[in-house]
Simulated scan of single mutants.
Amino acid sequence: MTSLQAAGCGIIDRASGEPCPRPVAAGDLNLCARHLLEAYDAVVGEVGVTDALPAPCAVCGSRLGVLYASGWLCAVCEWRHGEVPDEGAESVRVEVVYYLARLDRIKIGTSSNPRARLAQIPHDELLAFERGGRDLEQRRHREFAHCRAGREWFDRDPLLLAHLERLRADAPADPWQLYLRWRSEATALLGHHPA
C-alpha cells in the first residue's frame, strides 16, 4: 500500500454514511475486494467483455462475441446470441464508426446495428457516423491515442473535434439520415426494396 492510499476502502455506505471498513484490495484503486468486483460488474454491464461466443453466430457465423449483463451479442453483426433469424431473412449490414458525447468525453466505437448498440451506451449526443468497421475504428483509436481517456473514450481534443467537423461538413444534420442512406444504397446493391 502506498502512502497515498487510505487504510480502508474509499466507498461511503449510502445507508450509514460511514466509510467501508474493509481493507483495500491489492492495486492502485482505493477499494476493498467487494467494491472492486461491484465496480468491475458495472463496467462490464456498460462496455461488455469480448470473448468467444458459446456457439457460432446464427446470422454471420462469427465466433467472436461481447458479453454484457443482458447477454451475448455477436461482435461482428451484433445479433443477440440465442435468437433465431426469420427463415429466408436476408439482413443488410452497414458497418459504421460512431462518435458519442458524454459529459466532456467522446466515445469512438463501431457497430453494424447502431440503434441497438447505442441504446446500451449512456450518452448525451450522437455526434457523427463514419462508414467503416473495426479496422477504421482501430485506426481512429490510434490516430487519437494522444487524448485517450479510457478504452474507447477520448478527451475533447482539437484534432478530434476537427475530424468530427469534417465528417459533419458533407452530411445531413441528423447522423441517422446518413445511416439510412447507406442502408438504402446497400439494399439497392442487393437488388431488394427496403421495407
Results as ranks from 00 to 15, higher is better:
80 R>I: 15
108 I>G: 11
107 K>L: 04
43 V>K: 14
151 R>T: 11
121 I>W: 06
192 H>A: 13
19 P>Q: 03
174 D>I: 03
89 A>I: 03
29 L>C: 01
77 C>G: 07
179 Y>M: 04
55 A>R: 14
162 A>E: 15
43 V>G: 12
49 V>H: 14
73 L>H: 05
26 A>N: 03
42 A>F: 13
171 A>F: 11
195 A>R: 10
157 D>K: 07
61 G>A: 00
43 V>Q: 14
182 W>P: 00
54 P>M: 12
167 L>M: 10
64 L>Q: 13
46 E>R: 14
80 R>Q: 12
140 R>G: 00
137 E>D: 04
48 G>Y: 02
141 H>I: 00
180 L>V: 04
95 E>C: 09
60 C>K: 06
120 Q>F: 04
177 Q>D: 04
126 L>C: 14
31 L>V: 02
107 K>H: 02
124 D>K: 05
179 Y>K: 03
103 L>Q: 06
55 A>F: 08
162 A>G: 15
115 R>A: 14
66 V>K: 10
66 V>G: 05
112 S>D: 08
125 E>M: 13
158 P>R: 12
48 G>W: 03
164 L>C: 05
99 Y>F: 10
181 R>G: 04
188 A>W: 05
65 G>R: 00
47 V>A: 15
87 E>H: 06
61 G>S: 01
163 H>S: 11
186 A>V: 10
52 A>S: 15
134 R>S: 13
107 K>N: 02
142 R>Y: 04
97 V>T: 00
67 L>F: 06
157 D>S: 10
127 L>Y: 00
180 L>H: 06
52 A>H: 12
146 H>I: 07
124 D>H: 08
77 C>A: 08
134 R>G: 09
52 A>K: 12
47 V>E: 12
128 A>T: 05
126 L>T: 14
136 L>T: 15
102 R>W: 10
36 L>N: 09
82 G>K: 09
71 G>N: 09
144 F>Q: 06
193 H>T: 07
67 L>Y: 04
146 H>V: 06
92 V>I: 13
6 A>M: 12
167 L>I: 12
82 G>Y: 05
150 G>I: 03
106 I>F: 08
37 L>S: 14
26 A>D: 08
52 A>W: 10
174 D>K: 05
49 V>M: 12
4 L>I: 09
25 A>H: 00
157 D>F: 14
67 L>R: 04
145 A>V: 04
167 L>R: 09
151 R>G: 11
33 A>V: 07
160 L>W: 10
134 R>L: 14
45 G>D: 12
126 L>E: 07
65 G>W: 00
38 E>C: 06
152 E>R: 02
144 F>N: 05
34 R>K: 01
136 L>I: 13
64 L>G: 10
172 P>R: 13
73 L>T: 07
